[in-house]
Design a protein around this nucleic acid. Structure first.
Lengths: 202, 202, 202, 202
DNA sequence: CATTAATCGAGACGGTACGTCTTGTCTTGCA
DNA sequence: TGCAAGACAAGACGTACCGTCTCGATTAATG
C-alpha cells in the first residue's frame, strides 16, 4: 500500500488492524457494502477514522482487505476422480459465495472495480490469479490420472466454473443446493469431450 | 412498476421518460455509474428531479430502467447448426457487455441488488427471465434439428453461458475477441455429451 | 387582483372561495403560516390547486385574504370616557392578536411584506388604514366629549397603540391579561398630557 | 448554544463562525431573508454546508445568530434630561430597524418565531431581555435625576417604545425622519404624567 | 534519560449527492 | 369555461458520507 517509510516514531498498533478487519466484516453482514461507512467502522472498532485512512486509500481498499482476509480458495483434496474433484470445487465456491456479507460485498466490490481499473487489477492479482492457479492444479491432476488426454482451455474453464456459480446465485437467484452436482457433471462432460480429440486450434 | 392508478389528473408525459433514458445512457458513457448523478440527469434531460423520483424509487431504479431499455436480448437468427447458434449468441452477449457504460452500470447494479431483494427480483423478472427464455428457444431449435437428443438443463446452461462471459470480462479481464468461438465450442461439446445418453437424474 | 374578465364561460363557484378560506384558517391554526402549503389547502378544501391560483397571486395573497376575512376592527361602542374607550380598544386588539393561527400568520405575513412592497402596500390599504380611521374616530369622540383639548398626533397614537400590543405579545411574550388596563391608562395619560397645552409644533 | 462538551477532537474554527456571520449579513442585504439560502451562505463563506448545520439547527438559527451579532442595543449616553435620553434611544432603535437587510430579516425571524417556541424563547433571551434592561437603566437615570417620582411600568414602556417604532416602520410604513422627537415627546409626557401621582395599583 | 517523530482517538473541515418538499404553471377529462 | 386531479420545471432543504485536517495525548526507538 503506502508503507515503507517506517524508520522512527511510534509503530503501528497491530490491534488496530485487527479491529478494523473485524468491524468491517461485522458491518458488511449487517448493512452490506453500500451501507458500510468508514465512520461506522471506526466507531465499531473503537478507533479514529485517521487510523483507517493511514492504512487504506479509501473505503474500497478497506473493504477489499477485510473481505479477502484469509479467503484463499485452497484446492479441495484429491477425490480420485475428475467428477469428484469438480463437485468438491463447486461446493467450495458455492460455500464461499453463499457466505452472507462477504458475498454481497464481493459483488459490490466487483461493481466498483468495473469503473476503477486500479481496484480491478488489484482484485485480479489477489483474488482471481490464485483461483485460476488452483483450477489449473485440479485439472492437471486429471491429466496425470489419465482422465483427460491433455490440458483443456484453463482460462475458459476458470471463467466458466466460477462465473456459472456467480450467475446462478446472484443473477438467476436459483437454489444452490444441487448446483455442485449439476455443474460438475456438465463441466466434466465438456472437459472430457473437448480433450479426447486432439486440440485443433489453440 | 407502480402505475395503474391513473384515472384522473394530467397524464405522464412520455417525452419525459424518453429524455430521462437518453440522459442516463449519455451520462453513463461519460462518467460511469458511480459518477452518475440524479441532478445531472435531470439537467441533461431538461426536466426536474421530481419527475425522476415520481417514476423511480432512486438512482438504482432509474439506471436499471435506462440500461435495460430495449435491450431484449433477442435470439440470434438460426444459423443452421448448434455451434453456429451458440457462437452467435455469445457474440450478442459479448457485444452487450462490452458496451461502455452499460456494462459498469450493470455490474454496479448487480452489487446493489445483492443487498436489495426488491431490486433483485425486479432485475430477475425484467432481465433474466427473458434471456433464459431466449436460450431455451435456441436449444429447442437444436432439438428440433436433431442435434440434441433431448432438452438439456436449461437453467444451468443459461447461468453458465452468460456467467462465463461476465466472469471472462469483469473478473478475469481477458480479451473478448475470440471468446465467442471458444465458449461456443466448449458449450456445444458439453451439450452434445450430456444429451446423447438419456438423462439419468433430473 | 386579476378578476373582472368574467363575461363568459362557467361562473366561479362561490363554495370554492368559502372552502379555501375555511381550509386556510384551519390549517393556520394547525401548522402555522410557514407550515402552510397550497397543496394542503387544496386537499383540505377538496379542490384543485389551480382554483386557488386562479383567485390569488400566491400563497401570501391566499393567506392574507383568509386572515382578514371579516376582521374589520370596528370601533368599540362609546363607553363614555376616553379611558374606557381605550381599554375597550385594547381589549379588541388583544383579542384579535391572541386568536391562535391568525396571529402567527399575521406576523409571518408582516415578515414577508418587509421584503415585498406590493404585498406591503396591499396590507396597509386593507388592514392598516381602516384601523387608523377607527382610532381617529375614537379620539374624536374624546375631543367632542371635551376630555381632549384638541386632536392628538393620530399617526403616532395609532402606531403606538397597536405596536405596543404586538410587541407585548410577540416580542416580549408577556401575559396579556391585564395589558388593556395598563396600556389604556398609559396612553390616556399621554394623550391628556400632550393635548392640554396647545400644540407647539406640527 | 449547545457547546461545552468539547474536551476532545478538533476544535471549532472560529474563522468559520466569522465567515458565516459575514456571509449571512452580506446576503441578507443583497437578497433578503426569504432569498437567503444555506447553500449560498456556505459558498460565499467558502465553507461547507455541514459546518453551518453543525452550529445551527437550520436557516432560522443561522440568520438569528448573524443578525444579533454585536447588536447589543447599548444605552445611549446620558443627555441630562429624560426627553433627551428618550430621543436618543428612539434614534438608536430607528437606526437599527432601518438598517437594510437586518430589519427585514428581523421581521421575518419574528414571523418564524411566532410558530416556533424554541426560537421565540431564544430570541427573547438574547435580544429582548438586554434591551429591556437598557430601557430600565435609562428610566432609573431619570428617577435619580428627580425627573420621575418613581419607577414607571418598565415592561409596558419597553413594549411600547420598541413596538411603536416597529409598527411605524413596518406596519404603517411612515417616514421615520421625525419619529424620534414625536415618540420621545409622547413617551415623556406619559411617563411624567403616570409617575407624579403615587401608583394606585401595581 | 531525554528527545523525537509517528501513532492514537476524536471530531471539525470543505465538498457533494441524496431524496423530500414546495411553488406556481400546465394538461388532462368531466360537467 | 370552471373544476379536481395531478404532472411538470425549478430549486432549497436538511441529512449523510467521503477523505483531509487539526488537536492533545501516547508510545517506542534513537541519541
Amino acid at each position: 500500500m503506502h508503507r515503507n517509510k517506517q524508520q522512527t516514531g511510534r509503530p503501528r498498533d497491530t490491534r488496530v488492524d485487527a479491529a478494523i478487519t473485524a468491524a468491517v466484516i461485522e458491518l458488511l453482514e449487517e448493512v452490506g457494502y453500500t451501507g458500510l461507512t468508514v465512520a461506522a467502522v471506526a466507531e465499531r472498532a473503537g478507533i479514529g477514522k485517521a487510523s483507517i485512512y493511514r492504512r487504506y486509500a479509501g473505503k474500497h481498499e478497506m473493504a477489499f482487505a477485510a473481505i479477502i482476509h484469509g479467503r484463499t480458495l485452497e484446492v479441495p483434496p484429491d477425490t480420485g476422480s475428475l467428477l469428484g474433484d469438480l463437485t468438491a470445487l463447486a461446493r467450495v465456491i458455492v460455500g464461499h459465495l453463499t457466505n452472507p456479507g462477504a458475498a454481497t460485498a464481493l459483488m459490490s466490490l466487483l461493481g466498483e472495480a468495473a469503473g476503477d481499473p486500479a481496484l480491478a487489477s488489484r482484485f485480479t492479482r489477489t483474488f482471481v490469479e490464485p483461483e485460476r492457479a488452483g483450477n489449473a492444479e485440479l485439472l492437471e491432476r486429471a491429466v496425470r490420472r489419465g482422465e483427460l488426454a491433455r490440458m483443456p482451455d484453463v482460462d475458459l474453464f476458470h471463467a466458466m466454473f466460477g462465473g456459472t456459480v456467480m450467475s446462478w446465485l446472484f443473477i438467476c437467484h436459483h437454489d444452490p443446493h444441487d448446483l455442485p452436482e449439476r455443474l460438475a457433471r456438465f463441466a466434466c462432460a465438456a472437459l472430457l469431450s473437448t480433450t479426447t480429440t486432439p486440440a485443433i486450434s489453440r
